[in-house]
Design a protein around this nucleic acid. Sequence first.
DNA 1: CTGAAAGCGCTTACAG
DNA 2: CTGAAAGCGCTTACAG
Lengths: 342, 342
Amino acid sequence: MRQEKLGIRSVAEAAGVSVTTVSHALNGRGKVSDKTRIRVQRIAAELGYAPNRIASALRSSRTNLIGFVSEEIATTPYAGLILVGAQEAAAELGLMLMIINVNRDTVEDAQIDALLAQQVDGLIFASSSHRIVTLPKRFDPARTVLVDAYDPGTTSPTVVPDEVGIGVLATRHLVEAGHRRILHLTVEEDVPAVGGREEGYRQVMEAEGLECEIVRVPGPADAAAGAFAIAQARRGPDRATAVFAFNDEMAMGVYQEVVLVPGITIPHDVSIVGVDDLRIVAAALRPGLTTVALPHAAMGRRAVELSVRQFQQDAPPEASVERLPGRLVERGSVAAPAVTFS
Amino acid sequence: MRQEKLGIRSVAEAAGVSVTTVSHALNGRGKVSDKTRIRVQRIAAELGYAPNRIASALRSSRTNLIGFVSEEIATTPYAGLILVGAQEAAAELGLMLMIINVNRDTVEDAQIDALLAQQVDGLIFASSSHRIVTLPKRFDPARTVLVDAYDPGTTSPTVVPDEVGIGVLATRHLVEAGHRRILHLTVEEDVPAVGGREEGYRQVMEAEGLECEIVRVPGPADAAAGAFAIAQARRGPDRATAVFAFNDEMAMGVYQEVVLVPGITIPHDVSIVGVDDLRIVAAALRPGLTTVALPHAAMGRRAVELSVRQFQQDAPPEASVERLPGRLVERGSVAAPAVTFS
DNA sequence: CTGAAAGCGCTTACAG
DNA sequence: CTGAAAGCGCTTACAG
């Protein structure tokens, strides 16, 4: 059972043709008669031959490798879905991903150089949360795609969530449930997600002729911030019947605060929508949290598609920003406002 | 600024030596005088030369690539830390990771073949939660390391969490806080995590001469299961003062149930310890959940070390299972039992 | 200590 | 339509 090394040579010998013909037949290049092509393919399959990608990469200077550089990607739950989406798309296109992880504020040139030394055809730079970045100098903009990150100074294609659309989706869902007094709880951070979601909220409220009520608290946007924000809001003269929280963590803080108030229940007395679809939280809360899921996997897929286009077409770099839509995930935290609405 | 292709040749010419000598000087092989070696290294650095890893892999048949096959890794929050740990260790050792993602019950041979065609030196198979697997036939056991997964039929080195130790850690922490009646909430699933943590609980309880009280509910081990389990327990004649929950999600269910019971607070009336350190949940609960963190990053690191040892030493395959310890993360859910303890 | 030469397994002009 | 030959950029015996 000892396997002699199985190369293109073995296939050529078994098929009684030259290695050139085998290469042509298997890669669909050059002119090969159907008869020969089919026979070669069959024999290759029978032998279990798979071309050595290293050799083919060296000769053709095309590795079909994409370097995936992520920033603390595994520290944000579910942001790893960017990677999963990218990997799926890569597999479908016959590409492989080589990954490195970098820290937010440390430019690790050595790691990036290692990726470049692997002759990757393209580079994807993925942040773990939508923010403004400055692409490290090592990245050639003509070979790079940005995901969930925006660099105003680059010409690289960029894929981000449609933050405004997310704000619209969440707010409209509450409006359609019958709410008129809708609070937006958010934080003071200056990132695209904060500004975009708020903008979407404003658009819907203004289109409906409703008054915007925004409570902005110091970040980070966690459960404590959510609890603090809702507590502040409850000091006001009138009570809103619905809350659009910047994210699920803040929404969780709202739940925690509300449960302490006798006689107030979700969704009967207050409806809530979050953003992120942190499933482990959103599904475990009572009632389940209605939220807007971020398009992580879709962004990863799209980034790979754009990367391939970039290096296969050798097209001139063309700055573009694609905003992918979020998706409303309905659970149980939204209902019509109580009739006892003041 | 057009960069002519910068290869080992360019360095050789600039240094006035042969490519052989450059290769030797840069790789620390063969005999090269210190003077020459240092000069070559300096010139290579000045030129910004980095060897083409593809060419070097083809010639030496060593790619310094590890194939990282993960099972739904990004769907379990923080399990991605296995990947982060592995990537860090790989970077330190001059290796790169190529990743593919497979579904639990679908053997995707094509994907694995693609990895093999890349001539990876080693393979790491990582599950997203500690369980029994059967390694797909495509994997050569002599080139594979298993992480967070155990295959009784393989000779591959295996790295898993020390589940018994985790049970011991959690239970002992409660005992040391003064608790005597400690409930273990768990599920009926037949996976190593369930059996191991329960075993650790039993060991401590028996060593202390305490009575084991285990509530086992149907899985999955989520918040609903935790709420159900604690509700069942509360029907009993006596009340425990502490709970060791199988995981943080079940612990979250306990919080939700307890908050509904007037006059009962955590940790004053009941202390809780979970497992997983799902930070987004554990830190957001009130009070913060004391839990045992799984050694995800450490397992990833260790897997890479074992993989390197495997393919560098060509040592005969030697079955081994390493159990890495969990780590107690104290927040606010454990206190001494109330004096009014019945 | 140093270098000329072979060769890793493919792909790609090029000739026939 | 098919094949002989060159060559991708390194590493590695081997000779000097």
